[in-house]
Design a protein around this nucleic acid. Sequence first.
DNA 1: CTCCTGCGCT
Length: 699
Amino acid sequence: MGIAEILLPRIILYNSSVLSSSDRRKPLPTKVLQKCPQISADSKVSARNVEVSKNPYTWNSNIRTRIENNQHEEALGLYLSMVKENITPDEFTFPLVIKACSVLKKIKEGKQFHTHVLKYGFHDVFVQNALLYMYASCGFVEIARKLFDEMNERTIVSWNSMIAGYAKSTSGLELEAVVLYVCMLNRGVCPDAFSFTVLLRACGSVLAVKEAIQIHSNVIKFGFESNTLVNNGLIDAYLKCGLVDAAFLLYDRTNEPDTVSCNALITSLIRQGDLDSAETLFRKMEVRNVVSWNAMISGYVQNGLCNEALDAFRRMKLEGIKPNSITIVCLLSACSLAGSLSLGKWVHLYSDSQGLVGSNQIVKSALVNMYSKCGDIKSAQQVFKTMVKKDVVSWDVMIEGLALHGKGEEALELFHEMLAEGVKPDELTFIGLLNACRHGGLVEEGLKQFRRMSVEFGIEPNLEHYTCVVDLLGRSGQLNDALKIIEEMPIAPDAVLWSALLGACRMHNDVLLAESVVDRIIALDPKCSSNYVIMSNIYAARNQWEEVTTVRRKMKSMDTEKEPGCSLIEIGGVVNEFFAGVPSDHPCCKEVSDKLEELMIRIKANGYIPDTDLVLRNIQQEEKERDLYFHSEKVAVAFGIMKTPPGTQIRIVKNLRICKDCHSAMKLIAKVEKREIIIRDRSRFHHFSDGQCSCRNFW
DNA sequence: CTCCTGCGCT
């Protein structure tokens, strides 16, 4: 069976259609060849041919073929075999293998080649250029510059490589690209098309409209106006600087619209939030390549449209376009968003079979993220372990994953490991850490890390960090300390931050503080319904029904609606969606209601007392209980129990936070049904089993 | 032989 026959499982999200059996997952082929077959063939050649294979020329052209086919790992493998065969590399070998290091960002191997170069004494300009670019593309711009300054002969490629190094740098050195370009002109070196394409990459960050226009005038001056590559670079530069009209003007003036410029426009439209126009442009394109499809898939995912993203992926394959690792990363994002473990697993197997995982850190980090977000923290940890090179994002996603699953101590341990390996933490590392402490009830530790971040690591806490700390203190009952933090922080608090405090007020029934907090929230964001809901919850819990009515009237006048609770459960490849309330539009609604009633009776016999304080309306006890019964996660659980064999794990994704009542009900359902129930809510994962929850009541 | 625009991880 060929790889092309593997089909994407037809997981239908937000819809109850049935999966057709022919589309089910088929066994996957074995891994891609790691070794290059040509090597063994070469080593078996007869004595007559030995002379030929001793010649580095044959090896060089083999290496070049690999590089042209994007098989950079294999190219480096060939070099090793070559050395093993006692063949001395020549001045043509090094530019090739060093280029492979640049593409793969293998600085360690690159440095080794640098040593070899010095040992063999190859100092020609090709080797020097390759080294220069290798250091620049691995982020060592200063080393590259040192090499550049020491070169006794420079070609236009040397200048372009150095300019590219600055232009692509993320450390604010983009301006240096322009400085060097001007320096080059002053020395009488004439730029070529490459000079402009690399220079234009610096636009959009430090370099703004003014510089883009200046570069454009230089393009005209040196006669590269009709060069497609340069023109595309200009279009992209204008888009990134916000001169969208100018970009479209350049695009319209082009005789033959190019795929690359179209892709840039699509990306820009998506960035502006205009998905419809992006779609229209995409449909009009005559030639669509993998980047075009990736741009659309990424656009759908950014807008939360998982179904459309998957659909685009199917159409892409039908058009015969081969997905690349970027496609995989986008798909994994969609899986994380939908919380669909089965789909995520499929994407993992599929990308492995296509050789798209390999040692790609970004794909691996996306996998770690997907497994954590889909509730399979063990697989996330397994993938993480296989990562040879870990960047700050890899550590961040793993720490955040452990936090989501309430493994606070493990997250802290990992953080120390990260520091020990010399990786510098960033803002998101601390979001992960603070979340880990929040979800693990580690108040002191959380405060310690919060203080550390600016003092030791020079990272100033942002609103999100403050929200974590306020939540951490608030949950543990230290409401005044939380308030103090807000009052003393150097940045202006937003509605979300105040909401964290309001939630804590609800938890500890501090109605006085809540009243002053809610006023501040309404002043900042009058439309957000959840705060009115929390406030009316506080009043309802104290039987202050008049106040409840006032809040709800105010909420109505503000034209806000409560976001409806919604839970997803995937069974046999179909995602079933349940909203709060008696299910009415699901094919099995009557059976689900009956099953739920039955479950409630059984857990009541095991000590379940409905927490009717949580119900908003002033209604009779019995009705209050019915309101609680039909929270979406309870309905979804009843459906899951009904539709799966005894003992099967149940996984649910919920859009809001799980409520206290559902939380205690789930513990008992897990116990009486002898099932493991895993619920992902807006804030974290809850693993229920045998009457307990993994969150130890911190959430 | 070396520099080549567009799409990616919390």
